[in-house]
Design a protein around this nucleic acid. Structure first.
Lengths: 212, 212
DNA sequence: GTCTATATAATGATAGAC
DNA sequence: GTCTATCATTATATAGAC
C-alpha cells in the first residue's frame, strides 16, 4: 500500500511537471506550481526527485521509455504504416514537453531529439516502399527538418490556434483547418514548379561567383 | 556628443538583449548577462529601459519598425517577388528573437506574429499571380502554418544544425543541406500522391462515424 | 512518506556618488 | 550618462517534526 501510494504520488508529480513544463517552459515553471498541481507540498517534490533538474531528467527518461516501447510495439505488430502513424499521433499530447525539453537544452535533449528523428526516419523507411511517401533525396536531412518543423510549430501553438479561430490546436474549430492545411503543404508544397529548387541546388553546387 | 554616446549605448544594450533573448530565451536571460555583453553596468540597463520588461518591449518595437520599414520598401520597389524573398532573408538573423518573443507571450507577441504572417501572406499575393507559387486552398491558414513552422524550426536550430553536421544553421556545411532539403519539402511535399489529403478532407467534411 | 518551517542563492530594481 | 553598492523578492533546496 505504502509503496503503491508512493508510486502514485511520484507519477502524479511527474505528470504535473510534464504538463506545466510543456505549457510554460521548464525554466518558467516553479517547483511550487508543480507541487500545487500535483496536490503535494513543494518539499515532497524535491524529496522524491532530489532537485528540479532531477525531476526534469525523470521526465526525459519517462518520455524516452514511452518512445522506445511504442517503437518496439510498432515494429513487431502488423500493418506497419498504420502503426507508425499511430505512434506519431500517440505522442502529440507530449509534443509540448518534448519541444520544451529540447529547446531548453540539457543532457536528455539530444537523446530526445534523436529518438524523434529516428521515429520519423522509420516512417520513411516503411512509407516509401509502401508507395505512400515519395523518397527524399536526403532522407536523414528530411527527417531532421520534419521533426524540427513539427516540434517547433508546437511551441507556437497559441498563436497558431488564435489565427485559426480557437484557443488550442486540438479545438474542434482549429484542428480540421490545421490538419488539412498542413497535409496540403506536405502533399503539394508551396511552389508552382521546381524552378526554385533547381536554382538553390545550382547555387550551392558551385562556388558562388562573388561574396555570399 | 553626449547624446551620440547615449544612443550608442542604448543601441548596444538593445542589440545584446536581442541576441541573448534569441539564443537563450527571454526569461532565461538575466539583466547582468545583457549588461556584460553590452559592456555596461547592470544599473545602466535599467536606467535606460526602466525594467527588463521595458527592454523587451523596446526590442519588440524595434523589430516591428524594421519589418514595417522593409515592407514599405519592398512594395514600392520594382521586382516584387525578389523584394519579398529578400525581405524574408533579411530577417533570418532575427528569427531567434522573434520566435523567443512570440513563444514567451506578452503584449508585443501577437503583433509580431501578425506582422510575420502578413509578410508571408504578401508573398503569396505576389507569388501566385507571378506563377511562382501555387494557390493554397486556404491562404490565411497556409500563411499562418508556414510562419509557425519556420519560426519554430529556428528555436530548434541547435539540434537541426547538429544533425546536419555543424553548429549553427548558417555554417557553410549546414546551410546548403538545410536549404535544399527545406526547398525540396516545399516543392514536392513528402506524400507520393493526394491520398492522405483526401482522406483527411473526407474525415473532417462529415461528422465522424463514432467517438473522436 | 509527507508536511512545515527555514537557509541560501540569484535576480530585478533602487539610491546615490561621480 | 554611468557606475557601485544595496534592497527586496523570488526560487531552489535543506532540516527536522509527524
Amino acid at each position: 500500500m505504502s509503496s503503491t501510494d508512493d508510486l502514485q504520488a511520484n507519477a502524479r508529480i511527474r505528470g504535473a511537471a510534464m504538463d506545466l513544463f510543456g505549457k510554460q517552459g521548464i525554466r518558467a515553471t516553479t517547483v511550487r506550481q508543480i507541487a500545487q498541481a500535483a496536490g503535494v507540498s513543494p518539499g515532497l517534490v524535491i524529496h522524491h526527485f532530489g532537485s528540479k533538474d532531477g525531476l526534469r531528467r525523470a521526465c526525459d527518461e519517462w518520455m524516452m521509455a514511452q518512445i522506445t516501447a511504442t517503437k518496439t510495439a510498432a515494429v513487431s505488430g502488423g500493418g506497419a504504416m498504420e502503426a507508425v502513424f499511430r505512434a506519431q499521433n500517440q505522442f502529440r499530447p507530449f509534443y509540448g514537453y518534448i519541444a520544451a525539453s529540447i529547446s531548453e537544452g540539457g543532457e536528455g535533449a539530444d537523446r530526445l531529439f534523436e529518438a524523434m528523428r529516428r521515429l520519423t526516419r522509420d516512417m520513411f523507411d516503411v512509407g516509401v516502399p509502401a508507395g505512400i511517401l515519395r523518397e527524399p533525396s536526403d532522407i536523414d536531412a528530411m527527417s531532421t527538418v520534419l521533426v524540427a518543423l513539427t516540434l517547433g510549430a508546437t511551441m507556437l501553438e497559441g498563436q497558431l490556434a488564435r489565427h485559426l479561430g480557437g484557443e488550442h490546436l486540438l479545438d474542434p474549430e482549429v484542428m480540421p483547418r490545421y490538419s488539412i492545411t498542413a497535409t496540403e503543404l506536405f502533399t503539394y508544397g508551396i511552389f508552382a514548379d521546381d524552378t526554385m529548387l533547381r536554382q538553390i541546388q545550382a547555387a550551392f553546387a558551385k562556388p558562388p561567383p562573388d561574396g555570399l
